[in-house]
Design a protein around this nucleic acid. Structure first.
Lengths: 242, 242
DNA sequence: CGAATGGTTCGGAGATGGCCGAAGCATCGG
DNA sequence: CCGATGCTTCGGCCATCTCCGAACCATTCG
């Protein structure tokens, strides 16, 4: 089985501390330069370059050249999911090296951040909770399901579920999404196609904004209104505490 | 973020060739002894012991003592899922180091095997296909859904869906399952609670049998009858070619 | 009790791989 | 055309980790 050695190679690549840091930095789905990634990992650009070259050769990362910059990003969504699943194991194992609730920056991350292509943190969990509570989504630890009511609701806020419906690998009368366990909240939030669509829509509409140089995101006043009035999120006060 | 380093540690542990082999050997959900695992990895028992101790300390593996034997198994289902997701990435990356269709043993594995707690290989894919075709399950690459017809069908073959229904982390009118991409077939098969239940039922009823010292399984004559008549699997001839 | 078997611990040889300084290429700006 | 910037390649130092031989514990069985 040739894939056995590939398995080990992928895991080993992900297992070096410096590379793990860089991969984490790329988990927000953006493409970063070698220098930025070097800073994130706390190493020199030379070392980072070497690491990046290896990960790119194997195929974990993809590179786009723009002028004299080279932007690195996760090559495929499956890489992001792999990282989620490793984080999941880490969360399971972490005894209670509990929330070392430190640093204002960490606080911002816990409040709201992106996880590859969808929302995580208190915001992500609150969104998922609200959608479940309104009967728009059903969730278990294994899988998620968008209900008829959910399809209608998404239409109302301007998300067309047509493409999602067409996308099943099999015929599928319903749209499915995917739960992604949150490392800070230890509760599931929405990932998959639906999670990505929600996040994209929110960014486009100016409900949320990326915070410079971080995976954290900021909810705008307009965003708060939408969250409360449309999504009926009532955990808002918790998230707002900033 | 303390979990950052734990992430790297877990990935690094999974990334050593010898340890990866041992983890793979444990992917059928059984518990194996150190000596068996050493043989699987092609190293001496001393080395294996050291590896096993490390993985156990971190929490990837769990050990049960029985007499002078110590049985090692994957500590939690999340570890199995992590491995699935890494294999998934490996399958994505594998250019076309295509099916190096070698060895009779590999052929058996491709035909039917267990993947932690559910079926994989041609059998797993054929089962999933048949269930989808009969409208008993809906599948996308992200998630799976058991239909009303599916619940009825499971009842007919003696699987009680009651416990599954009660198990959602949120209230959930339906039972959900999970797709797991097959490395040999490159098509999804059924995992999650439903996949596990199907596999367990099949073993108990004597529809399938584990093949000694391998993850491969054998379908009994009785099993073939059930597959054709109950599940309406028609890919059977493909699988049968042994 | 003593031999046999499963398993772990110890110690040292060998290999791998990360890291950085220095130097070499590209691209952009003046 | 020249300097600055982003990035990569090269070379050597150093730490880590894997591996196995040998010896040591524990359990079972004759």
């Amino acid at each position: 089985m040739a894939s056995q050695s590939l398995f080990a190679e992928i895991a080993a690549l992900s297992g070096d501390p410096a590379r793990a840091s860089m991969l984490h930095a790329l988990m927000d789905g953006r493409a970063l330069t070698a220098t930025e990634l070097a800073r994130a990992a706390g190493i020199t650009p030379q070392s980072a370059s070497s690491h990046l070259a290896r990960m790119t050769t194997v195929g974990l990362l993809a590179v786009e050249k723009h002028g004299r910059h080279r932007y690195h990003r996760l090559a495929t969504p499956s890489v992001a999911r792999m990282m989620e699943s490793i984080m999941q194991v880490a969360a399971d194992l972490e005894p209670d090296r509990q929330r070392l609730t430190v640093g204002p920056r960490d606080a911002a991350l816990r409040r709201a951040r992106t996880c590859y292509d969808h929302f995580a943190g208190q915001l992500g969990v609150a969104l998922a909770d609200a959608l479940v509570e309104q009967g728009r989504v059903e969730l278990t630890s294994d899988a998620g399901l968008l209900t008829e009511a959910g399809i209608v609701f998404l239409g109302e806020i301007g998300i067309d579920t047509g493409p999602m419906l067409a996308r099943g690998t099999q015929r599928s009368g319903r749209v499915l999404c995917r739960p992604c366990l949150d490392w800070s909240e230890r509760r599931p939030h929405l990932a998959g196609y639906l999670g990505a669509a929600l996040c994209a829509r929110s960014m486009n509409e100016g409900w949320t904004r990326r915070i410079e140089g971080s995976r954290a995101v900021d909810v705008t006043p307009k965003g708060w209104r939408v969250l409360r009035e449309k999504f009926r999120v009532h955990g808002a006060p918790t998230i707002e505490g900033s």
